Amino acid sequence: MSATKSRLIYRQPQLADLPAVFAIFGDPQTNLFNPAGPMTDLAQAEALLERWIKHWATHGYGWWTISSAQSPDHILGFAGIATHDYLGKSVINLGYRFAVEAWGHGYATEAGQAALTHAFDHLGLPEVFGLVRPDHAASIKVLEKIGLRRFGLLDDVPGKAPSLVFRIQRNPA
């Protein structure tokens, strides 16, 4: 199952994506605002990829593997919606991570909007959340651009400032 929208191709992740998952999630630049830091070994990437694949099998949606329509075999990043634990509360969380080469092209905004469209128009979900570190200005800008608004704080990183919680609700028809 894959869908093409605008400049990007979205498809379910597969085991063959492992090198790209490790390259992107293991890159220190893509983890500047990740308190856990970059992945340090392939086993971490494999565990993440397996969680994504299992989420798709269980829920019928999840993070996508994303490439450009012009170069479909080259993975630019990963994005989508998935269940996430906000300190004991399960929510639908929007997330994205792109290779450094893909930054500055509007891909996070485009993928985020595609994820929201999927969540609301295809899945009928009532709301989607986004969690971001308070000093990650670029990610905050993306969330705001696609319609999420500040909702609260989540003290999820011991010894650090709380993460910002953003939320958007489906417009009733």
Rank of each mutant, 00 (worst) to 15 (best):
G37H: 01
G37E: 12
G37L: 05
G37N: 09
G37A: 14
G37F: 03
G37S: 09
G37Q: 08
G37W: 01
P38S: 12
P38Y: 11
P38H: 01
P38F: 05
P38L: 05
P38M: 02
P38V: 06
P38D: 05
M39C: 03
M39K: 11
M39P: 06
M39E: 12
T40H: 13
T40L: 13
T40I: 06
T40R: 14
L42G: 00
L42T: 06
L42R: 04
L42Q: 14
L42F: 00
A43Q: 14
A43L: 12
A43C: 02
A43S: 15
A43K: 13
A43N: 09
Q44T: 07
Q44C: 02
Q44D: 07
Q44K: 09
Q44S: 15
Q44L: 05
Q44R: 09
Q44N: 03
A45C: 10
A45D: 06
A45N: 07
E46G: 06
A47L: 05
A47Q: 10
A47E: 13
A47T: 14
A47I: 04
A47S: 10
A47D: 13
L48S: 11
L48M: 15
L48Y: 12
L48G: 00
L48D: 08
L49E: 07
L49Q: 08
L49Y: 04
L49C: 04
L49F: 04
L49M: 08
E50Q: 14
R51H: 11
R51T: 12
R51I: 07
R51C: 11
R51Q: 12
R51P: 03
R51M: 15
R51Y: 01
W52L: 13
W52I: 01
W52R: 04
I53L: 09
I53T: 04
I53R: 09
I53M: 15
I53A: 03
I53Q: 12
I53G: 02
I53N: 05
K54Q: 15
K54S: 14
K54L: 12
K54V: 06
K54F: 11
K54I: 04
K54W: 08
H55P: 05
H55C: 06
W56A: 06
W56H: 10
W56R: 02
W56T: 04
A57V: 00
A57P: 00
A57C: 02
T58P: 00
T58H: 11
H59K: 14
H59C: 12
H59I: 00
H59E: 14
G60V: 10
G60R: 07
G60F: 10
Y61V: 04
Y61P: 05
G62Y: 03
G62E: 08
G62C: 06
G62M: 03
G62N: 06
W63K: 08
W63E: 13
W63Q: 14
W64R: 04
W64S: 03
W64Q: 12
W64F: 14
T65W: 03
T65M: 08
T65R: 00
T65I: 02
T65C: 11
T65K: 02
T65L: 05
T65N: 04
T65E: 03
I66R: 09
I66S: 11
I66T: 11
I66F: 07
I66N: 13
I66W: 11
S67G: 06
S67C: 09
S67E: 09
S68I: 04
S68Q: 15
S68G: 15
S68W: 03
A69M: 08
A69Q: 15
A69I: 12
A69T: 14
Q70V: 09
Q70K: 12
Q70G: 11
Q70W: 04
